[in-house]
Nucleic acid binder design. Structure first.
Lengths: 182, 182, 182, 182
DNA sequence: TTTT
DNA sequence: TTTT
């Protein structure tokens, strides 16, 4: 039940492969880094200046599974989610804030590549992507006919972070060298 | 599962009270007539010219029930749905098309009045609106924690139209004098 | 100045090449037929049933020019516009209504194909598309740095319709065998 | 020119009066703190748990002026903008990131209160609000008929911060006791 | 860090 | 810090 509207709509490309983690009860949680490009005309020079905005995306439930399986670095994707800012503690004990686009049971994800993913035609896709699968799956955690389906526990936080090692983004509870979560 | 995006977002006021019908299995179906206002500067005269656009809304499921109960003529409301054009036969046997904004399990509705609806404070609300209810309910057919909840059969059309008499909008199958559905 | 919100967001594919017309003062007006796909699980059979929704798009100004030049049948595109229903007269003198998604100075268009359009690599693109142009242009009639730029006269209607012949969609004023505008 | 889509749509209430600043060339820049409410059903207890999300909004141009003049603490408002994360230096020399919703020439703002703002009827509105003005103005920096109109320089950052003292939010360049911008 |  |  919402007493307001909180909606984010993005179309952009992944800066890197998705990172998949799992909650204690086995639900997938996927993090994406998404770039949206814009260019504007500089008022001084009249030049077109490119500008890239990076977004941190967190996906839950079925959408997360699909994203983890089919999206790759470079993939173009449509995402609909909501803004969420979470507070965490830096190593210095001070509060830090990270704003993310959360794609949960009310969100949507849509792959926009011609054939199912960025560089996956040129090189083998990791995680044993099944070749017989549809090439451009779309995902919506909640949809017609999906009544009673299991859904990611996107509330209450507290998902596990197995590893978080090399290549994965630092998370608040991790003991990393720096405390920059974004 | 969507292989595309079809989204409509409206904020406007109801031109009349909602019309509620029921499907054979008891699910509510509500029709709204929503006005969105816009004004533009006439290039000749420089005058600000007001322009009202009317939208035909069809709601299913829990949202429909809430809308039927709390919305009234004049109510300001936020609506998120999808575009759908349906074909029907005019009395002359020719095809007609009506485009509607469908608010189903994936849609959203949000009342925006200060206290629960347009003119409902000045006159008794029909349909036995419970006075102890929250004044400004928001509705989303599908939401967190709602797993396994029943949902409107918003697919396959074919809902019943009990009456359709005085005050209700003409529907394709009705035997009205004119064949204008919108 | 809007006293409401009227927004449509679509991602889909063109059912045919864009139709370009020009206003008396030379501004481009482009019509598109856009399909958005959705499939839902039939509650009886449990089968996934595909469902295609067709949308009639009207574009004005700079966006129209870009769309006319780069979009082709099959092109995947993101569109942001507003709903507009216009009334016209059928041959029988009765009123008809057609709802369109209008993409004007406040709208947006975004090509989503890997390389500039649907089937345009396999066959010569009409209208003398320049080969040296960027492959995937994006268009926004109104944008940063664009102050003072000319814009389509998307108000007041009354654009000319040169031809409207074979292959183009019937328009209200045309003298066609049927009066179905959509 | 956008090579992507970056859109945020919010409906919520202001947590405090808007803060207005001015760029060196006199353009208004307004900061808002907007709350969007959501409640979800706790899966353990079955209780409805309220949850408020706070958003930092930055407005430029004509929208900023309207917002500064008419919005007040408690005002309900519709906002359309884009996500932007900016980097700044904490007092400890470390990088910090703040994500904001930027409402510029492409954004939109819509007041949703019955009569022009939260508590502004009960107390004198600052900044000499004209009493004869419309009660519920809507604002769009870019709109029909607005061709050639001046617009806020929403690019390049670097607006001045006159004061930033008591009551205003800490900004990166300020010399405050803490370095929390959000 | 992506994409054109 | 808002609102219901």
């Amino acid at each position: 039940m919402a007493r307001g509207v909180n909606k984010v709509i993005l179309i952009g490309n992944l800066g890197q492969d998705p990172e998949t983690r799992y909650t204690p009860n086995g639900n997938a949680v996927v993090n994406l880094n998404l770039a949206t490009d814009e260019s504007y005309k500089d008022r001084q020079t009249g030049q077109l200046v490119p500008k890239t905005e990076w977004h941190r995306i967190v996906m839950f439930g079925k959408i997360a599974e699909v994203a983890g399986q089919y999206l790759r670095k470079g993939s173009k994707v449509y995402i609909e989610g909501k803004l969420q800012t979470r507070k965490w503690q830096g190593q210095d004990g001070q509060d830090r804030y990270t704003t993310e686009v959360v794609v949960d049971i009310n969100g949507q994800m849509q792959m926009l590549d011609s054939r199912g993913g960025g560089d996956n035609a040129s090189q083998g896709a990791p995680q044993g992507r099944p070749q017989s699968q549809p090439q451009q799956p779309a995902a919506q955690n909640s949809q017609q006919g999906n009544y009673g389906a299991p859904a990611g526990n996107n509330q209450g936080g507290g998902y596990s972070q197995p590893g978080g090692g090399q290549g994965s983004m630092p998370e608040p509870v991790d003991d990393f060298d720096d405390d920059i979560p974004f």
